[in-house]
Structure formats: structure tokens, C-alpha cells
Amino acid sequence: MKRHSIIASAVELGFLSIAGVAFSHGSGDDQSKIDLVVNTPTEAVSREEGLSAWDRIYAVASHPRCSNCHVDESNIPMWSGPSYGKTRPHGMNINAGISRIGIESIPCSTCHMQSTVPNDIAHGAPHTGHAWMLAPVEFAWFGKSSAEICEQMSDPARNGGRDGDGLVQHIIHDAEIEAFIVWGFNPGGGREAAPGSMQEHLDDMVLWTAAGMPCPAE
């Protein structure tokens, strides 16, 4: 395996622009770091290995920590947790709107601050180093099958214009700013984390993309 190390430091976040108003949150004193290593395969990755890696990626993508904000054009985020039973729509009549950041009614940022301090308060509105928001509607994962999510994630027209390397870099960038993927694996507040670790997720993304992004049959 060829290894090169990427040290992603928690950095102060930039600006969330909502209707012309700039938000700049962050204490500036966060010392947390996430170390990720891109383990580039030195040999060809088989389709079977790629599909196996995809199964683990799907387990992450379909986990409530990730899929709850990857919702469809209803624009309604979901809630899951031990006290809710079945996953349910976000309380408080929340609808993030077409903007996906709630600008049509109440911005997500009203309650979800942009901060890299730990999420250690149970039931508190979680926060990350990225401004809180729904994923773009074409990235809808909630309620989708493994094949459906796989086809979406491997389609540059529906994944933010990313090729395989772009998907890998997306995870690395997320770690650099301590955004949503970081939070999914360490949500705090008693929330169930997405399965595995961020390093394992990155490893799986490297394998899956190296295998040509194979997708399971429906």
C-alpha cells in the first residue's frame, strides 16, 4: 500500500451567507485534529472487493446520522434516536425549503450553530464546522435502496460533479473543516454513531472508486 498522510486540523470556519447576512461562528481555540490516511491500492481492486466496500459505504450513507439530512424534495429533515422509536420528521414543524437551509421560514442556523466544539449535550441542536443544512436534493438518501444511492453517488450529474478522486477528496475536505461526515462518526450527546470510523469510510471510498464504482443490482 502506498501511504501518504493527511493531517486535517480543525480550522476556523468561514462564512454562511443567508440573504445577504454573513455568519461567522467559531471560537478559534479548538485544538482537535482528525488524522486521515489515503491508502491507495497498489494492485487492481476487483469488482467483488469494490462491491464489498460499497456495502459498508451504504451502511454509513443509510444510517440515520447521514440519511436524516439527505432527504427528498419534501425538504423535511428527519429525527432518530432512542427516545423517538421509529424515525420521524424533525420536530417544530421544520421545513428547510428549496434553499435547503431554511431561509424560507427559519434558517437552520437559528438553532444549529456553526462550531467545532464537541457536541456533548444530549438533545441539544447539534453543530459542525460547516453551516447546518440539508444535502442537495439530488443527493437524497433517506429511504433509498443501496442500488439507488450507489447509482446517485457514482453519477457526476447527481453527486456534485465529482469523479472517484473527487469523492475521496470530499471526505478529506470534510475532515479538514470538521463537517458533517466527521459529526456522523462522532455525533455526541448520546446519539448513535454511523458504523465504523471515518478512516474506514475513507478506505472504503478509495477501494470502491478504484474498483470503478460498481453498484449492486436492485
Binding site: V21, F23, C111, M113
Partner: peptide, 9 residues
């Protein structure tokens, strides 16, 4: 812009 003062530092 409205924010929750309990949750912002």
C-alpha cells in the same frame, strides 16, 4: 438574524 443565545458562545 435570530439565534438562540443559549447555544451560541
Amino acid at each position: 438574524i435570530a439565534v438562540r443565545a443559549c447555544s451560541i458562545t
